[in-house]
Design a protein around this nucleic acid. Sequence first.
DNA 1: TACACATATGAGTATTTACACATATAGATG
DNA 2: CATCTATATGTGTAAATACTCATATGTGTA
Lengths: 103, 103
Amino acid sequence: MSIYTYRCNEVKRMSELLKLLSEPNRLKILCNLGLECRPVTEIVNETGLSQTNVSFHLRLLREAGLVRPERHGKFIYYCLPDAGLLEHLEHLRLWVQQLDEKR
Amino acid sequence: MSIYTYRCNEVKRMSELLKLLSEPNRLKILCNLGLECRPVTEIVNETGLSQTNVSFHLRLLREAGLVRPERHGKFIYYCLPDAGLLEHLEHLRLWVQQLDEKR
DNA sequence: TACACATATGAGTATTTACACATATAGATG
DNA sequence: CATCTATATGTGTAAATACTCATATGTGTA
């Protein structure tokens, strides 16, 4: 890796993205999705959240382009647009884990 | 890069971290710090935020281990513990920039 | 010791955000 | 078309969070 400075570019946009990712239930939804597309009902079952609540969060994620809906018959499948997001989250997780070990 | 799945590990911890990073003024403080250590007054001047507000955010960042205070005489310098965080933020920024271009 | 400057903190308020309830929409199937 | 199932949405409320004001603490210097 060769990027050593974060130049305060687009603080507002970054903040929006991070705020979306920071809600525990949204994060759970995203990582439960993983790289597979899943219908809402399945997300509801896997997360244990109410249907209304899942739809509430999916709307925010969808409007931000973080998930993409695809209708197949009765069901609407939600998917991540690409694997990048999960990768970055995983790197961040490893980073904070190291941080916690040092403290 | 070889990490293709974010396994829902430590959703709570991740959510805490992301919540901290997601506040625009905190993000501004972090990237203004960059890799240099700076006294609070300088952060106040550079960000245009009130002293109280900067201290408020610095406390949260400090308690989470995201910044480290160092007293030098009258001044307390704040520093990032390592460059990793800024790198990850920058990667995320590039990712979301690409996402936005595609939409 | 007294004062000035740098920073932190407690308490109150305002704003944002998550969530639930009730209801609406849209597709499948009888 | 009527009904069932899947999902979305509007509105109200409760909880979380950012911010400000007033004040406290701590350090250097006269």
